[in-house]
Design a protein around this nucleic acid. Structure first.
Length: 545
RNA sequence: GGACCCGUAGCUCAGCUGGAUAGAGCGUCGGCUUGCGGAGCCGAAGGCCAUAUGUUCGAAUCAUAUCGGGUUCACCA
């Protein structure tokens, strides 16, 4: 349709224009373009005059049932019902503008030896959904995870753990699986506290941190290996519970370290400078800040490991793009690491992209792991469950996860999420539960009747037309979400879609009506579209709840 | 202090590749109700889109400045 208009503009005014059709307020028509106003300047003529001239030609094509010029020079199009119905039935035609690429994305990266909280859930859910978008865009997607299994935080946990075990690993084995997360969380918190308050403990923890690279005792190895395994089990379980798709590989900092350090050394001097024994990258020249990649004691730091990780990913997958989703605190930091990586390894140019998220704040106040004021993910599941059951519904993890995912995904990537448990759990308004319910309700109608009817364009009511037109918009919305890697567009759309359906539903009887076959067909397309959209968000669309 | 991000209704947010009267949800107030699942629908009130200047036929959207908030600034991760 837009190419047709471009063509007419060219014939009439000999100008190449970039005609984009937008969806105006329904009162104006089905589609709209402001091309006349854009042409006003180059042509030196009044926009309405140009619009009128274009409108005449456009009417002659016979493709539109109505062409209007309105306002300062908009051209509004109304198409025939047949076109609306056709478009609603062909929503899967998402044209991917770019050709398929190989893409790597970290869909979760919590550290072992620490507990997972709501912030980890946010990161994992968003990253996984972005991976879904990359899937939809026909890329070859590898979902991976990355975990910090070495360093200071390990030292802190090991300090408490070794004291707890006191030479007897059996003391860990007797801890029931259900209590491990809390236990590990406490171990880390205790070690953290000791590190801050006690100089002797600090020295010991520093040594235990060093041992995460080169263990000095058999018991260290035993405890470390067991707790690390526990952590990964825990992480995998929770991430799956959140509705994330499985990852294909787990990268570890302990593996990345060697690669990174070697690369840093190979480019010193040059990319890196030596300063008091440390190897430093002058990130301040690249919109970041000066940062040590290798410490004065020769040990690799976080940045070196991220650099090494980029190499590992490249060796394994040779991706055209590699996405890392992190909190905004790491934004400048990653700018530096990426700049350094591109200088050391030209083949990594323009590959790694850091997508930074906002922070999760609790409506009750700031979240702080130090004060223990964090929302534990298991607790959150329980809250959703209770709220749904309080409404007389039955809930399982899949439904609770859907509600949770939506809460995180509905805001623009980069915005903070203010997580109000009561609001998230309220189940009314713009929530995942509303959409899940909307889907279940539509499915229940479909259960009661025979399918096989067809939508009849000649009898569309205004509500039916609005609903079908909204359904037809699906492809455009998903395309935009994929292009921008912003899932929230889909959330906004699906909510509007469900609202449109509820208006239709309020106005029309489906079952038993003389137009039953026609309406059932509409409900069916609607339910499928809603389900598909929720699917992209990783939200399960239940048939009943 | 430097760099980056943000400031839209009482609250939480969309809208930002410049376009028609700035939209939702929650909350408030008022309707609908013998219903295919009311977790709904309809309506009302509520906005100098932080402020100022500029660019433009046209600015919530772009630019500059100011004010207010956040993040970050090497041997932690």
């Amino acid at each position: 349709m837009d190419t047709k208009i471009t063509q007419i503009v060219h014939e009439l005014f000999a100008i190449d224009s970039d005609v984009k059709l937008t969806r105006p307020d329904p009162q104006f028509g089905d589609y709209s373009t402001n091309v006349a106003m854009q042409l006003a300047r180059p042509l030196g003529r009044a926009p309405r005059e140009i619009a009128d001239e274009l409108a005449v030609k456009l009417r002659e094509t016979g493709e539109f049932s109505n062409v209007d010029v309105a306002g300062p020079g908009f051209i509004n199009f109304t198409v025939d019902n047949t076109i609306i119905v056709q478009a609603a039935l062909q929503t899967n035609a998402i044209v991917s503008s770019t050709s398929s690429a190989t893409v790597v994305i970290e869909t979760n990266n919590p550290n072992p030896f620490k507990a997972m909280h709501i912030g980890h859930a946010f990161n994992a859910i968003l990253a996984d959904t972005i991976a879904n978008l990359l899937d939809v865009a026909q890329h070859h997607v590898y979902r991976v995870s990355y975990h910090g299994d070495v360093g200071l935080h390990v030292g802190k946990s090991m300090y408490s753990l070794l004291r707890y075990v006191d030479g007897d690993i059996e003391k860990l084995h007797v801890i029931p699986e259900s209590e491990r997360n809390t236990f590990m969380s406490k171990m880390y918190a205790d070690g953290s506290k000791a590190y801050k308050e006690d100089d002797a403990a600090k020295a010991e923890i520093d040594d235990l941190a060093r041992q995460s690279f080169e263990p000095a005792s058999a018991i260290y190895v035993q405890v470390y290996d067991l707790c690390k395994a526990w952590s990964f089990e825990q992480i995998d379980t929770i991430v799956a519970r959140l509705g994330n798709k499985p990852t294909v590989k787990r990268f570890l900092e302990s593996d990345a370290d060697m690669y990174g350090v070697r690369t840093v050394r190979a480019h010193t001097p040059g990319v890196f400078q030596e300063s008091n024994g440390a190897l430093v990258f002058e990130g301040s020249k690249y919109g970041s800040f000066d940062n040590a990649f290798v410490a004065g004691n020769g040990r690799g730091l976080y940045a070196a490991r991220d650099l090494g990780l980029m190499q590992l990913k490249n060796e394994q997958y040779h991706p055209q793009k590699s996405y890392i989703v992190t909190a905004e605190e790491q934004r400048d930091y990653f700018k530096g690491v990426i700049a350094a990586a591109e200088l050391c390894l030209p083949e990594l140019k323009d590959v790694t992209v850091n997508i930074s998220t906002g922070t999760v704040k609790l409506a009750t106040g700031k979240m702080s792991s130090r004060d223990g004021d964090v929302l534990e993910i298991g607790w959150l599941f329980e809250q959703f469950k209770q709220a749904i059951e309080a409404r007389g519904g039955t809930s399982d993890d899949v439904i609770a996860a859907g509600a949770m995912r939506y809460q995180f995904l509905k805001v623009r990537v980069g915005s903070d999420v203010v997580f109000d448990v009561n609001e998230a759990v309220s189940l009314t308004g713009n929530t995942g539960s509303y959409l899940q319910y909307a889907h279940a309700r539509a499915r229940r109608i479909l259960e009661k009747v025979n399918a096989g009817g067809k939508i009849d364009p000649t009898i569309l009511s205004s509500q039916e037309r609005l609903l079908l037109s909204k359904i037809a918009e699906y492809g455009e919305i998903v395309e935009r979400s994929c292009r921008e890697l912003m899932p929230h567009h889909i959330c906004t759309y699906l909510f509007e879609l469900a609202q449109e359906f509820n208006r239709f539903y309020e106005a029309h009887q489906v079952v038993g009506d003389e137009y039953e076959l026609h309406r059932v067909a509409i409900v069916s397309v609607y339910a499928d579209t809603l389900k598909r959209g929720l699917g992209v968000l990783g939200i399960f669309a239940p048939d009943e709840m």
